[in-house]
Nucleic acid binder design. Sequence first.
DNA 1: TAAATATATGAATAATTGTTCATATGAAAA
DNA 2: TTTTCATATGAACAATTATTCATATATTTA
Lengths: 122, 122
Amino acid sequence: MEKYEAVCCESTEVHEDLLKIVEETMPEETELYDLAELFKVFGDSTRIRILFVLWKAEVCVCDLAAALHMTQSAISHQLRILKQSKLVKSRREGKSVFYSLADAHVRTIIDQGREHIEEDDR
Amino acid sequence: MEKYEAVCCESTEVHEDLLKIVEETMPEETELYDLAELFKVFGDSTRIRILFVLWKAEVCVCDLAAALHMTQSAISHQLRILKQSKLVKSRREGKSVFYSLADAHVRTIIDQGREHIEEDDR
DNA sequence: TAAATATATGAATAATTGTTCATATGAAAA
DNA sequence: TTTTCATATGAACAATTATTCATATATTTA
């Protein structure tokens, strides 16, 4: 076999039904891509740690770097990615730029993730 | 500056407070790592598409490959990753192996992600 | 037992990505 | 204006990863 023929698993009917359902309910290709891109942003422990700090307070880049024991450059690069996906927002105050969480989804998504991995222990 | 000195941004007190809060409330290093690993799994459009198919029904590998127009091998590799992070479970029935969503967190996380990216349009 | 079908997996390759280093930009102070 | 401080960013390198190809395993059928 190989290379997605229309029929496999010997049962033709079920297969056709599935294809129809998938075609009807699957989100647009761009939405699937955007979704994956969003979760990719959560998929790095540095960015996760940044989000946890911002969970507690609005913090400037410099303090973030100090709190996480990383260089200003590394933090700044990651903040740009977080901002591009609208997970954080920023506000300039003099020489400093303060970052904070952008909306409630960030907390919900992280909370659900934590619940999921904690289930492994039970 | 550079290389995370203890003090920066000229203000020492606020900084010390932040460091204390972060140290007290930041999850364990292993949990942060596991969280990032979990979201990394969501961060691929092929796996997202697999999850959307399983959203509707319990499906065998072969049908998944057909529905998503991908090779059996590619799907199988991704299913292994999804299973390792306990997002899907499997059940053997004769020659076929049927996969389904493992728990409710999958749906919640994806739903929250969709809500987040949809906000951009408003 | 041998052949056929469904799935799993190791190795290789191409593409993506996080951090570092050097440097640029932007704002305040001297 | 010049200097200093805080942040942003481009280029380069190392590390990770998704897919393909070939092949192995597991189950059923002949």
